[in-house]
Structure formats: C-alpha cells, structure tokens
Design a binder for these strands. Structure first.
Lengths: 213, 213, 213, 213
DNA sequence: GATGAATGAGTGTTCATTCAT
DNA sequence: TATGAATGAACACTCATTCAT
C-alpha cells in the first residue's frame, strides 16, 4: 500500500510490530500533551515501557517515530471509517452516511487527528509524501462516493467540482477538531453534521436541479 | 484591543515598535523556511540586523517572538481584508465580495498563514488565548456580514447556523493554503472562490427558499 | 612463545581457533577501512559470519579482538619473512637478502602493517607488552643477522650499534608503509630497497674499513 | 601558509587565538594520556578552563580540536627547529647540525610528536592533506640542506636519493619517539644522534668518494 | 541601549556488553 | 554452542538565556 519502510535492527517481524505499536501509543499520548518537539526520545521509550537503547533498535531516528505515528493514525481513521460506512444505502444516502461516519471518527479521534495535522510538517521531505498520499487516498474515497451520486443523477457536478467537494468534506471534518475550542462549546456533533451535510449536498443538489428546470 | 503586553527592558516605545517590526519580519521569513522550533534566536537576531543581546532587550523569551509574529500576521490579515471589502455593495453581494476578498488575502499571505496556524500551538497557555481571540474576532466579522443578509431576508439561518457558516468561511479560506499541494495544482483561485461561494450561499439560500414554498 | 591467553567461554580449542581466524580476518578488513574505534563489534561479528552473541563467546571484550589482530599480523609478517629469507647465502649477502625480504613483506602487507602500528596504542597496559615483545623479537632477528656479519668481519660495529642498526632496518621497512603517500609515488620498491641497503650496510662497511686502514 | 581555516562563532580574533591555545594545551595533555578517541569534549573544555558551550564557540567539532593540535605541534616543531639551526656553519656541517637539532626537538617534544603521528589518522579526508603538507614542508627543509651539500661537492646523490635521504632523516628522528621503549633505555640521545648522522652522511659520502676513485 | 562571549542543562544517538532462550 | 533482543552509560553537540563591558 505504498508504505515507507522504516528499518529496524531487530529481525523478528512480529516483535517489531508489537514494539512499534507500544511506541506509537506512548508517542501519541506524549505528542498530544506537549507536541513532537518538546517530547524527548527518552520519554517515549519510558512511556512505552522500554529503554532508550531498545527504542533505537526499532527506529533510526526520532522522526521515524513521528512517521509511524502519522501512519498509524491514518490507518486507524481509515479502518474505522470503512467499518462505519454502511454500504447497503441507496443513492445519495450512502454519501450522507459516509460523511456522518467520517465526522464521527474525527470526533472520536480528536487528539490523534490534531497531533497528526499539527506535527506532520516536521517530517522530512522524504517522509512527507507518504503521508500526503494517505490524505489523497482519503480524498479519493469521498470522490468515488460523490461520483456515484453524480452518475445516479442525484448530484450535478463537474469533475473539478467533485474533487473540491471531497476536499471540503475532509476539511470540514478536521475543522471539528481544529476549532473545537469554538465549535464544541456551541454545537453538538449531530447538529454540526446535520448542518454540514445539508450545506454540502442538499444545497448543491437543489440549486442545480432548480437551475436545470 | 486586548493585546497581550510583552515586556521590554527598553523604555522608548517608538524604538520598541521599530525593533519588534524588524524582528517579526526576520522571524516570519525564517519560520516559513524552517519552522519555529528549528529557528534559533541567534538567527532571528542576525536576520533582523542586531545582536542576540539586543534581541533580548525587546523580548523575554523566544516564545515572545512567536506571539509577536502571530499577532502581527493577524493584524495584517485583518487590515488587508478590511481594505478589500467594498462596503457599498447591497445585500448578499457584500457578503460574497467579503468572502472573495478574504480568500484573496489568504492566497496572498499563504506562507504567513501557514506559519501562524502551524506554530501557534507552541504558544504557552498564557499566550494562546490572545491568539484565539483574534480568530474569534475574524469569525465575528463574517458573522455580522451574514447576519445582515439574514436580516435583509437574503438568507434563512438560525443564530447557530450563522456561527457555523462563519466558521466554514474561515476554514475554507485556510484550506486554500493548508491543502495547496492538492488544490492549487488543479484549481484557480477564481474557480475555487466561485465554487465555495456558491456552495456556502446560493445552496443554502435556494434550499431554504424551496423548502419554504 | 609468550602469547597472551585470551579466555573463551567455549571449550573446543579447534573451534576457538577457527572462529578467531574468521573474526580476525573480518576485523582486519574493517580496521583497514575505518580504524579500530570506528568499527563496531556488531560489524565484526557480521563480517565474520556469526552473531554478536557468538562473538562474545570467543572473546571478553572488543580490545581482545585488537590484540588478536595485532598478534596475527605479527605472526604473518614473521612467517612470511622466514619463508623468504634464503639461508644459504654467504656472509653479508644473507643480511642484504633479509632486508630486501623484509621490505617486500612490508610492501605486501601494507594495510595490515598500518593497522597494527596505528591501533596498537589502543591496547590496554596489560596487552601492550605482549605486542612490544613481538617487535623486540623482530629486532632480534635482524640483530642476529647483523651480528653474524660482524663476526664474519664484514661489518665493524659495537653491540650498541648492532642494536641501532636493527632498529633502523625495522623502521625503514615500516616507513615504506607510513609514508607511502610520499614515497610510493616517486620511488619503486626496488629502488627504495637498493638505496636503504646501500645506506645501511655498504656505507658503514666502507666507512669503517676506510677508517681502519 | 596554507592553513585550514577553522570557523569560530566568536568574532574577536585575539580571543580566538588565546582560547584555542588554552584548548590545544589541554587537549595535548589529555590526548597524550588517553588518546583522541578516549578523550571527551567535556574533558577538554574542563581542562582548558571553560565550559563545554564555550568550547564549541571556538570550534565546530571535536575533530577541529585534533586539527588544531596537529597544526600547533607542527608549528612548534618547525619553529624550534629553525631557532636551533645554526646557519653560519660551512658545507656539510650545517646539515649535520640540522639533523642534530631536529633530533633534539623530537626528544624535547616526544609526547606531542607521538600524539600527532598516532592520532592524525583520525582527521577527516578534508583536514588530512593540510597536515600532510606540513610533513612535506619538513621534508623539503632537509632536501634543501642536503641539496646544498650536493652542490658543494660534499655529497654525491641523485635527486631521487636526496628525497629519500630527507625522508630517512625525518623518520629516524620520529623513531626516537616511536621506539623509545626500546631505544631510550639503551642509548643516549647523543649516541643515537652520532650514530645516525654517521650512517646517513659519512657512509654515503665515503662510499661514493671511494667508488669514484 | 547595544554587544557578544559565556554558560550548562538538555538532546538525539551510539554501542559494548549481557543473558534468557 | 548459538542467538539476538535488551540495556543504559556515555558521547558529541545545540541553543536559549544571561550579564559584564
């Protein structure tokens, strides 16, 4: 799936996976609290339950931890999203459900999402593309769902507009976390979701239908 | 206007303002390039044209520089925005123009906007609220514009929805910079603006009109 | 022959010898390339074809590897030298042949010789004497050859001078490797050997003969 | 004089020179004792009388210290040598005096000479040539002295032989330090010098004279 | 007010060595 | 005997901050 290979001195693949999971879990907690730069490798090792030497048996550099964290968060977002999406919905409802599911995942994974979007910029030029690709894949998921509604005659959108709409969905989901200091005081997730879906879909739908008539 | 006071050892207020402007200009350039954490105070002082000792005559800590930078960028965004907004537009057009103006400012100040939103998290708990307040003020500008259209009968929105719509405008402007690696390849600023305005305003407008009938 | 005993956890002497040969061969290659300090025990083990754990079954510390390397190089120098020396030469010619043979061995084993003389200083106070003794033995070989010429009336040298001449021979052979960056560009091994033999032997020989007359 | 420039963060050139002298003095003492690799930068700073931070205001890396040490030792060897050489000696005696002076300097600076020749190999590929050039310059000094004796008809040597003889002089001086564990027990510096001068000069001289006759 | 040399706590990373399997 | 994962002391180097001049 186009993952970047992070080399390890340890050979046992099962063990690598296990240790990296512990490490990522510890790192996410710490990054949430104090950010990537203010977290030391020693703290990560300690929180993960092993020594600094052991940490470096499983990564080459601190940046590798950040990459593994981003990678892991994306994978979980995606996997939760896919398990939430109900595929038996007909037409445009499937898209609506998908948006609601995505917003729900964003809500549940607020801290992780914040960490990822705020720290990813510290990735090297070499690692960044791998993370951007994940974002592109997320966008593509919604592009496909939108496209299906277009093909079903539920939406009237050019290819360019399909792409923009997908980006909008993604960022409005992230906005729920980015601006939580403002939004989550005044709005419930349900109301927020309701509003955004209406804006993103009904609006356009009605608009174009109307203009076609 | 609710600014945080950053103490200085120097008495001459004019001098303080001058030196801080030089310092912020230098810092923005450097933060753009390498981020806040990777930029050293020495580099900032040098780029600003004075010694490290002098830098510390005008701030107490590196974080003060970041605060001044954020503060300065907000002020410029706001000032550019206000000079762009044409106040003599009637009804909903004024809002549309304001959105377009805001997007234009975001486009022109891409690097600064990115710096601000990516590094502000490094501000201390003491300084952060001052920056958030700026964001709230920005939101309020759009809330007022939207409210006016509601009152003029051009839009049908509850108070809660007015607030959400304002947030949407802000974040969709920021999205043009956050996701420029994806958006600015495929879309022109004009097309992007056109699309978002239609989505944000016409959509809702038509929708509600239709549902009222 | 006065070798230092390097303890091993393994009992089988044959195995010890085999493993240590592999280890020394690997280490020499690595030491040549990057020196003793920059070579890690892991690298030595890997290059030798076994695990780091196994390496430590046959030595107690990294320094033991260095000792074994020095020891092994000395043994090879000596063994090559002895196989080159033609013992059936009469009088002073036997000494000349021995010097030429020694220079030839130095030339063939340049890298090893450099490694040994540059890294031996890192040996502990405990191990160093064992290596120095080897150097003393090498000196003794030439002292004996010189002495024989003195006794045969080919050279006129005091005991002290015999010792100094032997040291001269050794160091002029090493010089061919130490200063190769200067010597090997401008001089062939043959010319170099020719010159040094003349200087070391004919010179003195003629000189004393002349002065005696 | 073809020195490598070692950058410093400090601007005051006088201060740089002073601090570097302190640093080199401290480093030489430590390198003598435990070698370059076993000496830490903190130890050097402490022995020099300043903090680790200050040390790094005057160098970029530990290797810079080694370069400064080598550079400084060469400069002192050369300066001592030149102050010892009596220029009013006629003919071949000037060369003999020079050799004796050089051996005397080697004797006085034993520890420094050992440090330099044993650790110079740890210099980077970038710095090494600068040190080698110094050695070449030393060789050239003796080449010139020998050449003068050749031109005066005191020695009969080809250009190639002049070069080799100069190298011999250098290494026989160094040998007095390298092999001090053997030489300095059995021989006085005077006897050593006497023997080597005779070997290096009288030998060749007489030899060629004889062969010419 | 301005300077820049001095400081030292703190950071990422390495690597010889051990020991349970 | 052989393995290789685990360890943590140790290291080179950085950089925000101070303060004497």
């Amino acid at each position: 799936m186009g993952k970047k290979k992070v080399p390890s001195l340890v050979k046992d693949e099962k063990l690598i996976q296990k240790r990296r999971e512990e490490m990522v879990k510890a790192a996410v907690t710490l990054f949430k609290e104090k950010g990537f730069h203010r977290t030391t490798t020693r703290e990560i090792a300690k929180a993960a339950g092993f020594s600094i030497g052991t940490l470096y048996e499983y990564i080459r550099s601190k940046e590798d931890v950040l990459y593994l964290v981003c990678d892991s968060i994306y994978d979980e977002v995606r996997s939760r999203l896919q398990s939430e999406i109900v595929m038996d919905q007909p037409g445009i409802n499937r898209l609506k459900e998908a948006i609601a599911a995505y917003f729900k995942v964003m809500d549940e994974m607020q801290d992780e999402v914040l960490v990822m979007y705020q720290e990813a910029k510290s990735l090297s030029d070499e690692a960044l593309p791998y993370v951007l690709r994940k974002e592109i894949e997320m966008t593509a998921i919604f592009e496909r769902l939108i496209q299906r509604s277009v093909e079903a005659g539920n939406l009237f959108l050019s290819e360019e507009e399909v792409n923009l709409l997908a980006h909008n969905i993604l960022i409005l989901g992230q906005m729920w976390t980015f601006r939580r200091w403002a939004l989550q005081k005044s709005h419930s997730l349900e109301a927020y979701t309701q509003f955004q879906i209406e804006l993103l879909l009904n609006g356009i739908e009605m608009n174009r239908k109307a203009s076609k008539v």
